[in-house]
Amino acid sequence: MCLAIPAKIIEINNQMANVEVGGVSRQASVILLPDASPGNYVLMHAGFAISLVDEEEALETIKLFEQLAAGQ
């Protein structure tokens, strides 16, 4: 129901962030995510950052997949 993709915040001016996905950049509002700062990855939905991507958790999950794949 809700497409949101990880985008990297490049800079923030006046609650509007310049975010980047695979070399494509766009403006996104960070009004729903007051803690966001440049360098963060955020989930972007319909032009708004809606959640921070927790990089540590992501790496944890990826590690789990790697272990699983290595075990076979």
Partner: peptide
């Protein structure tokens, strides 16, 4: 694919 094309497609669904 170029990464920008993939980025565009992810962005726009």
């Amino acid at each position: 694919y170029r990464s920008e094309v993939r980025g565009t497609c992810e962005l726009l669904g």
